[in-house]
């Protein structure tokens, strides 16, 4: 329901691909309005050719991540009131990823790096052996648990300056995932994970700026995970295990 007394917002939205420009729309303000609501209003009422991506609308899927007033965020979990300074909102696609159209980026490089970092569980001889017993207070399990809730939205990757300076850098999400796996005693290729993150654009490229920590919508600390990987990789290299 539109509430006319709340006035309108000036919403600047990126149009085009790598080359493009901002287009300004006037969107009626509503109580408890999210940034995703703004984009959806524009697409449904003002310009159906606007391309953007969303799915769950409730902060579960992570697909609606965009750059809002210069900051990467989940638009579905961002209230306009919190970010709209002087009634203006500027919405851009995520940084550090190729732009497909308008607000939709190509996430392929982000997910490819997850694979480059061997960010997937490698089974051991599981079928024949007993199910591993892992006490919840096991130190390694605690490390893995602290990093496990990543849903791969790409906000940290977009926030990371090192990715913008070194496009090959694996990035916070991929390395954070690798950290959960090297701490998983059920994983069958700990050495493989370490080798993958020790490659030239691996964990040691991180400068520890903590932009990923600052922006992670789930409140994870990828910088800490990467620091853990750095320690393990350096020790493995010095022991000649890589």
């Amino acid at each position: 329901m539109t509430n006319a007394s709340l006035g309108t917002l000036k919403v600047e939205i990126w149009r085009g691909a790598e080359e493009g420009d901002f287009e300004t729309f006037e969107v009626p303000s509503q109580p408890s309005q999210t940034v995703l609501d703004l984009v959806t209003y524009v697409q449904r009422k003002l310009d159906p050719s606007l391309a953007y991506r969303f799915a769950c609308r409730v902060g579960v899927c992570g697909s609606c991540a965009m750059t809002v007033n210069g900051t990467p965020r989940w638009t579905c979990r961002t209230h306009v009131q919190k970010v709209a300074s002087s009634g203006r909102v500027r919405i851009e696609p995520l940084r550090n990823l190729p732009i497909l159209k308008d607000l939709a980026t190509d996430m392929a490089p982000f997910f490819d790096k997850g694979q480059e970092a061997l960010g997937r569980f490698v089974p051991s001889d599981a079928r024949a052996s007993e199910v591993a017993t892992i006490p919840p207070d096991d130190p390694k399990r605690k490390e893995a648990n602290a990093a496990i809730e990543c849903i791969g939205c790409g906000v940290c990757y977009s926030a990371c300056d090192v990715v913008s300076w070194q496009p090959d850098y694996l990035g916070p999400a991929a390395l954070n995932r690798a950290w959960t796996l090297v701490n998983d005693v059920r994983d069958g290729d700990r050495q493989g994970h370490l080798k993958a993150v020790a490659e030239d654009a691996g964990c040691h490229a991180c400068h520890g700026h903590q932009n990923c920590v600052e922006h992670c919508p789930v409140g994870l600390n990828p910088t800490r995970s990467i620091a853990g990987l750095k320690r393990l990789v350096v020790m493995a290299a010095l022991k000649g295990e890589l």
Binding site: D200, V234, A237
Partner: peptide
């Protein structure tokens, strides 16, 4: 092999 890692180790 892994030049960047060894440079990282040397710098730290």
């Amino acid at each position: 092999k892994r030049l960047e890692l060894w440079l990282y180790i040397a710098q730290r």
